[in-house]
Amino acid sequence: MQHLDPDHHDGTSDATPGGERDKRRPGELLFAMALTGASLFLLFDAWGIENAFGPNGLSSPRAIPLAATAAMLISALLVTVKTLRLPLDRTETVMKDILPVTVILFAALLIAYGVLLRPLGFLPTSALFLIVAIKVLARRGWFWTIGISLGSLVVIWLIFRIVFSVLMPSGVVPEAEFIQFFRNLTAGGGA
């Protein structure tokens, strides 16, 4: 079977194989070494799993974790060696192709979302997140940004709350009372 990659290693498609075939991407070696280190650590940890009910034999709870982490270590080592042999792709840089500022910013935004979710509640946190994110990405006027953000948030909230009955932390917004108000309203109107 031929290797099919109609120019999509640039990430325009969902089917994204990483990088050029015979070149090492910036940071790839570091990643492989980090995986090797992590595998080694996990292997040690797996070795420490003790069977409370008998010998640490082939059927003990440590068997599969040990086998899995050993497989991880061996494959990570092989990958590291293979990566080491490839020439570095000089056309790419970490800042441009692997970890641009936007990605770091969004990772930070997502973490901020997790931190704020409980104290602030779903609606305000999501509104803030969407406004900042869309503003950064689309670089359009505030009016457009806020309109699109709040509009899509309302749609999402309605779908979740009504169709899927997902309960998100309400935080500072009295969500339940709000819904009850409308329920009463419609019930009153219907009766």
Partner: peptide, 14 residues
């Protein structure tokens, strides 16, 4: 995509 990406992230978190 500038709208789509933030929405996917929001959906993922929820």
């Amino acid at each position: 995509r500038s709208v789509l990406i933030p929405l996917i992230m929001l959906l993922s978190i929820v």
